[in-house]
Amino acid sequence: MTNDDTSHLTPSDVTDEPIDSTLFITVSGPPGCGATTLCKRLSAAMDCPYVSGGDIFRELAEEKGFSLNQQTAAADTSDSIDRALDNKLQTIAEKWGAADKPFILESRLAGWLAGSHADLRLWLDAPDEVRLERIDGRVETEPEMQVREVSEAGRYQAYYDIDVDDREFYDIQLNTARWSKEGVFQLVRAAIESYDHDADEGAFDTPPVEL
């Protein structure tokens, strides 16, 4: 969900103790990894905006009267859709990276696009069978979502020379099938609250992305 550049999501069914932090956090992972669930909780607890690349992609499709599958097919034949989306996400990252305020950016390329603006980069994942069960009932069917994953990875490699399997620069890689939703949230919360800028000896370099 987006509102211009940002979407401030505050789930009414979850009330967490506030997280006092100014970190710019990116969350990435394949469909069904649990990114949306985590981002909504973090956004509410940190009282900060949250932007989803997937929501922007869907909004672009709706503006054109496309289904999600039609939008994906169109993106396979032209780089204009991906480049417009990624340029917007990178612009948002630059804006919030200079703001010294908490912010959450979620997309498959969020960690790459945010670059040095991000303070904490997360990669979420889960075994295929778990992710497929989680996406059951969504607009996309399981085969369609699997095709989208492969399609996106190929486009990222072709357009930006990005290998989505290169995860060295992520600060945290988490198998969300090993913990409950609450457990995942508490693990990430602990990482945020225990972060000490003065004790930070340095992150891995994020490869530059030229859009």
Rank of each mutant, 00 (worst) to 15 (best):
M1P: 03
T6S: 14
S7R: 07
H8D: 06
P11C: 08
T15S: 14
T15K: 14
F24V: 06
S28R: 09
P31L: 06
G32L: 00
C33V: 01
A35G: 08
T36Q: 10
L42D: 13
A44N: 06
A45C: 05
D55K: 05
E59F: 03
L60C: 04
L60N: 13
K64P: 05
F66N: 12
A74W: 00
A74R: 02
D79N: 13
D79I: 06
D82T: 03
L85S: 05
D86E: 09
K88W: 01
Q90Y: 04
T91A: 15
K95P: 03
W96V: 12
G97N: 09
A99T: 06
D100W: 02
D100P: 02
K101W: 02
P102C: 08
E106Y: 07
E106A: 12
S107I: 03
R108V: 04
L109I: 12
A110E: 05
A110W: 05
W112S: 02
A114Q: 11
G115I: 13
D119L: 04
R121Q: 09
L124C: 02
D125N: 14
A126Y: 05
A126W: 06
D128L: 12
V130F: 10
D136Y: 05
G137I: 06
V139C: 02
V139T: 15
E140G: 10
P143G: 08
E144R: 09
E144M: 11
V147C: 00
V150K: 15
V150W: 10
A153T: 09
A153I: 04
G154K: 14
R155V: 08
Q157K: 15
Q157A: 15
Y159G: 00
Y160G: 00
R167E: 07
E168L: 14
E168M: 11
Q173H: 09
Q173E: 12
L174N: 04
N175V: 10
T176H: 09
T176F: 12
E182S: 09
F185S: 06
V188M: 08
R189G: 11
A190Q: 12
S194M: 03
D198E: 11
E210A: 14
